[in-house]
């Protein structure tokens, strides 16, 4: 059902954890499927210096969370806001159709974290 890339990210997820003094935190959930994703950001000079995630969810949920953190670490906030759910799914060589909604949360959680940072630091950019 899942691609090799998805299985790799599921078995060896990148950037799992929390950042206690995070600059931005975003959490989204899909009550229907039961997935909850939380992303923590450390920002330096408008760049994502560190990013961590925690996820309660299925294989697709874990893999998409892991992939999105890998995709945006070291990128600017604007670049990170440009990352879409579709891009995350493509980076994983696709997801089964019934799992696409799980992937929707990954980019949403990232964007929520960036928005949280921007709310707290309106003068930063």
């Amino acid at each position: 059902m899942y691609s090799e890339k998805v299985m790799d990210h599921f078995n060896n997820p990148r950037n799992v954890g929390e950042i206690p003094d995070a600059d931005g935190v975003g959490q989204v959930g899909n009550p229907a499927c039961g997935d909850i994703m939380k992303i923590f950001l450390k920002i330096k000079d408008n760049v994502i210096d560190d990013i961590k995630f925690k996820t309660f969810g299925c294989g697709a949920a874990v893999a998409t969370s892991s992939m999105v953190t890998e995709m945006v670490k070291g990128k600017t906030l604007d670049e990170a806001m440009g990352v879409s759910n579709k891009m995350v799914a493509e980076a994983l060589d696709g997801l089964p159709p019934q799992k696409m909604h799980c992937s929707n949360l990954a980019a949403d959680a990232l964007h929520a974290a960036i928005e949280d940072y921007r709310r707290k630091h309106p003068m930063a950019e």
């Binding site: 299985m7 078995n11 039961g34 969810g57 299925c58 294989g59």
Partner: peptide
Amino acid sequence: EGESILLSLDGKKISVSSGSA
């Protein structure tokens, strides 16, 4: 979550099922 447990067990060649959505 149940499916992630299933997937992990499947990786160890253990087959079970789940009531997760």
